[in-house]
């Protein structure tokens, strides 16, 4: 069983980790780095609870080998908050009441963040399509979808504020 020493940037921090070949990215995050915000719901790429951003793209971290991630950049739910400010997707889903048990939430937030990165003004159909890989058993999705819409507005407003400046 080979060990691989890899360098990965996780939420902006450079980490040096020794990982066995068969360790998944999910296991590395949770077990090696104690970044337990990312959840394990099925280990088969179906539920989306383990979704993280790998080089800017959302992936099921249960289906990525840690060893493959040498040199990669990873964002987990713990990395969404920046400078003490919640990300618009966190803010939007929070305000819309899109959280119940919270177990799917980290994956949902990453998928939503990725959606707004590629499409800042998504339609309801876009949002639904972007979230089909994130199973939620509590909310019935209505408030998650509403939260992403709200996040898009929050992001838009923040951008305008940046563009036109205040003070």
């Amino acid at each position: 069983m080979a060990l691989h020493r890899i360098t990965v940037t996780i939420n902006g921090e450079v980490e040096l980790v020794d990982v066995p070949s068969h360790m998944t990215l999910l296991q590395m995050l949770r077990e090696k780095l104690a970044l337990t915000g990312t959840k394990n719901g099925c280990a088969a790429g179906e539920c989306g609870a383990c979704t993280v951003m790998l080089n800017g793209e959302p992936v099921n971290s249960c289906l990525v080998l840690a060893a493959e991630c040498d040199g990669a950049e990873i964002t987990t739910v713990e990395g969404l908050k920046k400078n003490g400010q919640l990300d618009p997707v966190q803010q939007g889903i929070m305000e819309a009441g899109g959280v119940q048990c919270g177990f799917c939430t980290p994956g949902v937030l990453i998928s939503a963040r990725a959606l707004l990165d590629r499409n800042p003004t998504p339609s309801e159909a876009d949002i639904k399509a972007a979230l089909v890989g994130n199973l939620c058993r509590c909310t019935g999705y209505f408030r998650i979808i509403e939260g992403v819409k709200r996040a898009a507005k929050i992001q838009e407003a923040a951008k305008e504020e940046m563009t036109y400046g205040i003070g």
């Binding site: 790429g45 790998l54 994130n134």
Partner: peptide, 9 residues
């Protein structure tokens, strides 16, 4: 095919 995150891979 499947979900967006699956299609990332």
């Amino acid at each position: 095919v499947a979900s967006f995150q699956l299609r990332s891979r």
